[in-house]
Design a protein around this nucleic acid. Structure first.
Lengths: 336, 336
DNA sequence: CTGAAAGCGCTTACAG
DNA sequence: CTGAAAGCGCTTACAG
């Protein structure tokens, strides 16, 4: 039979309330008492029953990670980070794939909250940018933290995507490229706008007029990268460099160029964003912006837990990015 | 305030025990009573408190998915399938990344079980093939289901990996290849042995002697595929085809050939295994064996839930595979 | 077919 | 600094 708090109390010669105090790091326990309790805990290998704890405390000690992201790599990284934070705070995590475009999206989340009763939520793109959901959560007074939200005012983690996008675009400019195209990300993701803005900013700073045919829509998927590249390669005066708003699309661009017999980087330079494994697994490897996704998951969860556990406000932490320059970008060899 | 079972009982004019019967689909409730209760449940939007339920029933209604797999794509697919099954049975799922090679691996799992108290476990490769862990679980009498276990006797899901590997090898033989190499998977994964056995079987049936230098160790990682390909390309008489035990390694092989200036499939045919996204995202796309991972996750969870919920024994279900032939394999153009 | 009572293992006021 | 009592919201025997 499993030890209960009562067993610990009896063997330590104290009340269950005192054991509870020790376990929950509450003040007002004599050091000697505390040590005696902890020793019995160890001896009996006592672990509090989570259900009893939740029921009595009226908290689930659970946070839910909500995602609707086509990239398994990204989701797994975030998930790993959130899990790390949860483990450190004796919380558990549940994961929830969702379709944020579905008409009953908010109702689905509501139902999930009603059933599992998480103490808080971690929101990832594009769920971070769903105003209706955020309004609903605020009204419920259910704490949440966001990862890379475009919307102001929530706690969590962010990165200066605009500046990062501008930097990698400037890198292409420095390599001598002027006809630089951009493949936009999925329209529902706030990051798409930010990265596009960074591209435009860098082009403007370089004094290059962005032709409208250089900016093509994408959807963050490999297939959309293939389609965009084909469209760009078919232009009368095709670009000498393409900056895709994520690595999956950059991989699609590379695939399409290989399929068309173009060489990267000789005929075309290609840059991505995110530094997911795919960027290293295509040939040539893609120059990209490293986003510390795992850290971002952990940090977002940490901010959420601060709020849940200690009632602190929590903050929006900005993490640094780094450029990863690889073989897919090189000096412009075609015309000036 | 949230509705409790007592509120439902009062408004329906029955006892809480009767409400409990209806909610848990127990027998011995008059149809009319049952309908009255369900109507009040709807009206009050009543959801049982999971903690109270778990505490009273002495079950967590939780299953844990244990993994130690380098492929995010694979894990996400399995996870999605398990989640589907859990949702259908009002169970929740927790995920647990582990290091199955760590010396304290069994202790870690034991601690996890002690803290979270799952009603059952889903094991994925290579955790499926850890005899010490399985023995421990059997002793604890904690139900588990396996995905692709090499070890006999557990419930869950499997695929005839040996036959699948033989089939894709035979495909290469039919294309005229005779110098066919194999890159083995990670030694801790049971699937590695099975796939190697399939390769050997097909080669034997084709009457081809497998030279020892054709069979090179790998680790299921992209990098190990690159290394293996370089080793094979350096042979005096290099193979005309390489069958890698998974897609990540096949992608690595393709990368290494491109890097060395070889053309696929003209200079070398390449085949993989799993049909993960990477197989379609490298150029040329890789011929591979489709493994229905998501279905496998769902089926394994379903067998586990049968056992947990209804005390049924559960079974080991075998799922079908399909060959996905793409552009990385072609007729042998080099010598006969 | 239905219900009253006890109990699951914790935490929460409250008292001292 | 410590404890006795009540209660969280369900299910489990048990009785009828």
């Amino acid at each position: 039979m499993r030890a209960r708090i009562e067993d610990v109390a009896r063997q330590a010669g104290v009340s269950t309330k005192t054991v509870s105090r020790v376990l929950n790091h509450e003040p007002n326990v004599r050091e000697q008492t505390r040590e005696r309790v902890l020793e019995v805990v160890r001896k009996l290998d006592y672990r509090p029953n989570p259900s009893a704890r939740s029921l009595a405390a009226n908290r689930s000690f659970l946070i839910a990670l909500l995602y609707d992201n086509p990239s398994p790599n990204y989701v797994m990284e975030i998930q790993g980070g959130v899990l790390e934070a949860c483990d450190a705070h004796q919380f558990s995590m549940m994961v929830r794939p969702l379709d944020s475009q579905a008409p009953d999206f908010v109702a689905t989340v509501q139902s999930l909250i009603g059933q599992q009763r998480p103490d808080g939520l971690i929101l990832t793109p594009p769920i971070t940018d769903h105003p209706e959901l955020l309004a609903h959560l605020d009204q419920l007074d259910l704490p949440y933290a966001t990862v890379s939200s475009r919307i102001q005012g929530s706690i969590g983690v962010t990165m200066d995507e605009t500046r990062a996008a501008a930097e990698i675009t400037s890198h292409l400019v420095r390599l001598g490229h002027r006809r630089i195209a951009h493949v936009i990300g999925h329209p529902a993701h706030g990051g798409s706008e930010l990265r596009l803005a960074g591209y435009r900013k860098a082009m403007a700073e370089a004094g290059i007029d962005v032709r409208s045919e250089w900016v093509v829509p994408g959807a963050f998927s490999f297939a959309s990268g293939v389609a965009a590249a084909r469209q760009l390669m078919a232009l009368d005066s095709p670009p000498t460099a393409i900056f895709a708003a994520n690595d999956d699309m950059a991989a699609g661009v590379i695939w399409a160029t290989a399929d068309a017999g173009w060489r990267v980087p000789q005929d075309l330079s290609v840059a991505g964003f995110d530094d997911t494994p795919i960027s290293r697994q295509v040939w040539p490897a893609v120059s990209t912006v490293r986003q510390p996704s795992r850290d971002m998951g952990r940090i977002a969860a940490l901010q959420l837990l601060r709020r849940i556990r200690h009632g602190e406000p929590g903050e929006l932490v900005q993490v640094p990015y780094t450029l990863q320059l690889r073989d897919s970008t090189a000096s412009c060899k075609r015309d000036a």
